[in-house]
């Protein structure tokens, strides 16, 4: 089994914050100009932000935004990417050629421009951020899934399954997915991190989460402006983001090792 440990704990906390956040008695939007940039103290554990709003409350609210964006973007990207990549490689021929060209075009296209353009066309807002980032995000997974499938297509057990006349779908699900899932999961863990950061980048251009809502990314962006005078504003979301990304990646690592062992035993049989 995978050891969950502290990373597991942190991620559970993240999840818990994301799910319960909207129901807690928080005041993430209460502006109190007297408290602008007041540092952490007895009344407020993490201090106040540039509008005198409690940073802790906003951190909890931001947890759910960032979770929502990361979860949906990565899920959508992985599903679409894996599906397209695997089938394209498996089917091969002209279909594959076309898919590869499309993937290439998307990869060669600067992602930030695509995201800006899409957000501009659809209007700002967190749902549109999910769509924009998914449109950019699926390509990486598709490419990886395709490469993996190509290299596995010729592995003994797949060739064997084909020659035994196994149904295609079954080959893909039974023999390909388990083997390509490991690198995809690793890619997905990195994906969570980069999605959270990309969301912040769009917020930076005003296309992400709209005020007064908060995401960790937008909090870091705002906080960086006041770094000289109120470091707590940028430290709190920065550390939260770092812990989550770190935990996701550590768990991803453990998952990979675990799958590696399993995968190898299958092949060596």
């Amino acid at each position: 089994m995978i050891r969950l440990g502290i990373p597991g704990l942190i991620l559970s906390l993240w999840f818990l914050m994301a799910v319960t956040g909207p129901f807690l008695p928080l005041h993430p939007e209460r502006i109190d100009l007297v408290n602008i940039l007041t540092g952490p103290g007895l009344n407020e554990a993490l201090g106040y932000d540039d509008l005198g709003r409690p940073v802790l409350d906003r951190l909890l609210l931001g947890a759910s935004t960032s979770f929502f964006v990361a979860f949906w973007v990565v899920t959508i990207s992985v599903v679409i990417g894996t599906f397209v990549g695997t089938f394209s490689a498996y089917i091969g021929g002209y279909v594959d050629q076309v898919v590869v060209r499309i993937i290439d075009i998307f990869l060669a296209f600067p992602g930030i421009l695509l995201a800006i353009a899409l957000s501009g066309i659809m209007g700002p807002g967190i749902e549109n951020v999910v769509v924009a980032l998914s449109i950019v995000g699926w390509v990486g997974f598709a490419r990886l899934a395709r490469a993996q499938t190509l290299s596995l297509k010729h592995r003994e057990h797949v060739v064997a399954a084909v020659s035994l006349g196994t149904v295609q779908r079954k080959i893909i699900v039974r023999h390909l997915f388990p083997l390509i899932s490991a690198p995809l999961i690793i890619e997905a863990t990195f994906g969570i991190a980069s999605v959270v950061i990309a969301e912040a980048g769009l917020s930076f251009l005003g296309l992400g989460v709209q005020p007064p809502d908060a995401s960790w990314g937008s909090m870091i962006r705002d906080g960086a402006r006041y770094m000289l005078v109120a470091p707590h504003m940028v430290l709190a979301p920065g550390i939260a983001l770092m812990l989550v990304v770190l935990s996701v990646n550590l768990l991803g690592d453990r998952l990979r090792d675990w799958m590696d062992v399993k995968g190898r035993s299958v092949v060596k049989k």
Partner: peptide
């Protein structure tokens, strides 16, 4: 601009105007 707009959003909320704030490039 967003900072100012957010304060105005809050001040309008206090008298019963719900402001949907949208920032664009």
């Amino acid at each position: 601009r967003i900072r100012i707009a957010t304060i105005i959003q809050q001040q309008l909320a206090e008298v019963g105007i719900k402001v949907d704030l949208r920032s664009y490039d």
